[in-house]
Amino acid sequence: MTDAAVISGPASGQQHAFAVPARRREEKRALANTRRVKRLRIVVPTLGFLIAAVLTVGAVLPKLFPIAALAGLSLTADGLVMNEPRLAGHLGGGRRYEVVASRAVQSLLTPSHLALEGLQANLDMGDGESVAMHSAGATYDTNTEVLNLADGVRINSTDGSKASLESATVFFQDGRMESEAGISINSPRGNIRAGRIDVLEGGDLIRFSDGVAITINPAT
C-alpha cells in the first residue's frame, strides 16, 4: 500500500498524512522508473541511478505543493514562499523517498511557475542502495511538467557512483531528459564523460553525444 505524509516546516510543526487520488498515477510512474533502473543497470552499470534519481524526483515533485501550501507559508514580493517544504512517502515495495527544498516560491503572477532553492531528494532503491540528488536551484512548471535544473545536479549513490551535470531539463510528460552542458559519471565500475546526454522513451533509450569517453574498470 502506498501512503504519503507531509512533514511541514518548523514554523507550525504539524504532521499531515493522507493519500491524494491523483498521486496513484505519479507513483506508478516513479515505480516504473525504479524498476527500469534495475534493467538499465544491467545494460550500462553506471547509468541506472542517474535516471532513477532525476525521473523519480519529478514523479513525486508535483505532490510537494498542493499539500505543502498548508505549512510554513509567507507572502513576499517574490510570491507565496514555503519555507523548507518537505515531502516523504513510500513508493511501491516499501521504498522510501523524501524531497526537501530549502525554499519554494510560487509566483503569484504565474502560479504554475515554482522556483525551488536547495532541492534535495533521497530515494531508496530497494536493494539496500539509495540515491541522493541535490540541485542548488530549479524551476518547475506544473502545467507543462517541465523541471529545469539550471543550477547543476549532483547525484550520489551508496554504491559509490556519482554523477554531475551542469544543468538538465526533464520533460515528464514526454518521459525525456536532456543536458547539453556536459555530464560526468564516476563509479567503482568505470566512468563516462560526454558533451551531451538525452534520455528518451522514459529511459529505454539513452544517447550520449558531442564526444563520448568511457572507461570500464576490470571486474574486481
Partner: peptide, 16 residues
C-alpha cells in the same frame, strides 16, 4: 580481465 577498457567515440546510444 585485469586492464581497463577505454572507449572513445563521437556518440553512444544505449538501447535498454
Amino acid at each position: 580481465q585485469s586492464t581497463p577498457i577505454e572507449i572513445e567515440a563521437d556518440a553512444l546510444e544505449v538501447q535498454d
